[in-house]
């Protein structure tokens, strides 16, 4: 029995995805940035978190400058004398880790809340979904700001704040999808076996609710990354000793007008490429899942 004639939904999905060269290119960019971010310690000339390696003599030098370390600062240095390329690679790492962690935790939490609400019905459903709707009426950035201010600085706190700000989007989506799928015959057929409700929810409902959730997940990972950058830009994100892209942009901001553009611009470009690439991939996934846009 060969598995090769099995057209798994995933394989079909990839075939269609690969027809959009722009989306494939963006996916390659996302993967490349992720690889660069995770291999950063092996790729960069300097550990930007090691304050002993920094020299103020190297601060705010333009791209191409050869510093006291004896190597070329390809993208120049920041106001603390960090090699900007190294700082950007490490910053990407923070961005991607925080985006993925916040996105994944929010996905799991939101999906549990949403499917539970759809499955429980009655007043539990009403109360849960009203709370979710109420939360969705606040801008995520406002909620994240308040939470970060309350919880304090640090990766864990930041991720917690982002999850709290974002899980509601997943809950809404999971709830809507579960409500729609629940009415379909295959759910009724599984329940009629009979199978316990929670087993049907996990084995049948959940896999069929995944497509819209994956779309939301890509968007929310990009959002988490830009929220983190925004918070760090405002000085509320991570500690100064571990500069993220948002903080690098913020650090270079005072020097923008004095011609030292690179300190803000290069981290900014890295951030934009990452977010745009994730969004292009997300758009393609969304289009493929939207039956109305199908040929």
């Amino acid at each position: 029995m060969s598995a090769s004639d099995t057209q798994s939904p995933l394989r079909l999905f990839w075939r269609e995805f690969s027809e959009n060269k722009f989306a494939v290119g963006s996916l390659v960019v996302v993967v490349l940035l992720a690889v660069v971010a995770f291999l950063a310690p092996l790729l960069v000339p300097q550990d930007p978190y090691n304050l002993e390696l920094l020299s103020l003599l190297d601060a705010r030098r333009p791209p191409g400058f050869v510093g006291s370390g004896g190597y070329v600062h390809v993208l120049g240095t920041d106001p603390q004398g960090r090699d900007l390329l190294s700082a950007i690679f490490y910053g990407l790492r923070i961005s991607i880790i925080i985006g993925l962690a916040a996105g994944a935790i929010a996905l799991v939490l939101g999906t549990i809340v949403g499917i539970f609400a759809a499955y429980a019905g009655g007043w539990i459903e009403t109360v849960l979904m009203r709370v979710i709707d109420l939360q969705l009426s606040f801008p995520a950035i406002l909620l994240a700001l308040v939470l970060v201010a309350l919880l304090g600085q640090g990766k864990g706190q930041l991720i917690a704040a982002l999850v709290a700000a974002q899980y509601a989007y997943f809950a809404r989506t999971a709830y809507g999808a579960a409500k729609a799928e629940r009415r379909k015959d295959y759910v009724e057929a599984a329940l009629a076996t009979p199978l316990a409700g929670y087993k049907v929810a996990v084995r049948h409902l959940l896999p069929n609710c995944m497509p819209p959730l994956i779309v939301v997940a890509t968007v929310q990972i990009a959002n988490a990354i830009s929220l983190e950058a925004t918070l760090s830009f405002l000085g509320l994100g991570l500690p100064v000793t571990e500069p993220s892209l948002g903080m690098l942009i913020s650090n270079g901001f005072p020097y923008m007008m004095s011609g030292r553009y690179w300190i803000s611009v290069f981290p900014g470009i890295a951030l934009i490429i990452l977010i745009v690439a994730i969004n292009v991939v997300g758009d393609q996934i969304r289009d493929q899942f939207n039956p109305r846009l199908r040929k």
């Binding site: 939904p9 379909k184 015959d185 295959y186 009724e188 057929a189 599984a190 009629a192 084995r203 049948h204 896999p207 069929n208 995944m210």
Partner: peptide, 14 residues
């Protein structure tokens, strides 16, 4: 039970 619509009664992801 055998349901009317075999396009709806089988889980598309199983």
């Amino acid at each position: 039970t055998v349901f009317q619509d075999p396009f709806a009664s089988l889980d598309p992801r199983m």
